[in-house]
Design a binder for these strands. Structure first.
Lengths: 247, 247
DNA sequence: GCGTTGAATATTGTTTACAATATAGTTTTC
DNA sequence: GAAAACTATATTGTAAACAATATTCAACGC
């Protein structure tokens, strides 16, 4: 047992990873839990300021606290959850100011994405978008909010994915996640969902015609309603003064 | 012991967090470890593809694997480390393509930041920048690369912090972190450090004169050398063909 | 009665031990 | 002698127990 510790040290030097490809790993348990909690927040099943207690989540997801803990750290960085040391985690509510700031950055990046898309776009890609759009419309008609949420998400991922810049795609996605929670406000009105649907159709049309300026304008317009609806709802609830009030 | 479990359930409903302010918490142990490892990567003390073994890091930082684990997850999300399930973590090397993509997004966001800075900027802010710049120059002269790194980082944080959009500031910072690792290449040449120094001085001048267009041009120019140096070094090392070769 | 103190409980944070998986080296078989 | 199977070891992943911290509620003194 005396000479053994050396082995690890040598191993670190010699083993420089034998050219391993990412083996298309499935998401870890912690990520799945994070995803589920995120869904709950998005669909309004969990209210802002509601506490997220580790043991409760363990019981719910049938797992140990390690995974739940990791999921909460994950959600904290995404901005959906607030964690206070030794006190725990709670669903985070965004202030109107934060929402406006996030949407300003989203607009900049999404416009950048459509600005660098290489035209013309392959018909197969446009067909994928149309298919997702049909799925989205059907879900809207049925009132299936979960499917609405995911098909909408996928639509935008495919659309902005066309730009080809992986970092840009990732960052757009990251910012979209931050405001997932406020969509439940925007979607409270059927007219909002309908407007989004029409925007999508127009986008597909612009894409097919390689009309870049139209696509940029649509991208900007498409981002407008959500923050406006949220801010209105917020002011109705907490008074007209939009300050840093936490309660 | 029969009726006790209920208490937790009721607690979750009743306790809606009694208006707690963020108590300016100090960074957790995991974050400190992540920071230290990041420094090692930035300064070239750890090579790309080098393995990061949890137990080694525990010995090094005198802690348990929980913290180290969390730090590695953290670094994975930042993009500095690659993790493969059941196999471990290693320092991640960026391909030239990734570097170009990241810098394209950085340019977009940093230009956005200086575009929305409210002029004129308070003299106190400009003084802070000048002070940091003096610190930076002194560190360059002394060859103190760690101080060079941090004073440069702070300079940009203050500069872009002037834009006032918290989300934008955070995202700029996030992307800068992703390419911290390649700065060791750029800084290999003294002329690079000197050019950066001059850029900073010009930026301060433009800021003082409220010359926005000049500041935007400087911001773009300032981002050029690093990826170029990295890509050149990469090609010299792995051959001129810039493909997905991993070794 | 009201604020304060103190014990009981709830919740998070840390540590350790254990199990599962991957890697390296050795032996065996053709 | 080379390929395949097996064993030993290294490393990560999981779980449970323990410790530290915060919250709740009741008793006490003023």
């Amino acid at each position: 047992m005396a000479g053994k510790p050396l082995k690890r040290a040598t191993a670190r030097i010699s083993k420089l990873a034998p050219v391993l490809e990412a083996p298309a790993r499935e998401p870890s348990a912690a990520m799945l839990i994070a995803k589920r909690i995120e869904e709950d927040i998005v669909l309004g099943r969990r209210q802002p300021r509601e506490r997220l207690i580790e043991q409760d989540l363990c019981d719910l997801f049938q797992t140990h606290r390690g995974d739940v803990r990791l999921a909460l750290f994950e959600l904290e960085k995404k901005g959906l959850v607030e964690r206070i040391p030794n006190r725990g985690a709670m669903v985070r509510g965004l202030t109107p100011l934060e929402v406006r700031e996030i949407y300003a950055v989203r607009e900049e990046l999404e416009v950048m994405a459509v600005r660098i898309i290489a035209f013309p776009v392959a018909p197969s890609e446009i067909n994928r978008l149309e298919q997702l759009q049909r799925q989205h419309s059907a879900a809207v008609a049925k009132g299936d909010l979960l499917t609405v949420f995911y098909s909408n998400l996928r639509f935008h991922q495919i659309l902005f994915g066309l730009c080809g810049n992986a970092c840009l795609i990732e960052t757009i996605d990251f910012l979209a996640q931050k405001v997932h929670g406020i969509r439940s406000y925007a979607h409270a009105f059927p007219q909002s969902l309908d407007r989004a649907r029409r925007d999508h159709l127009d986008m597909i049309k612009a894409l097919r015609g390689s009309r870049r300026d139209a696509l940029i304008a649509l991208t900007r317009r498409h981002l407008e309603p959500s923050p406006q609806a949220y801010i209105k709802a917020y002011e109705r609830r907490f008074g007209t003064a939009v300050l840093a009030s936490t309660d």
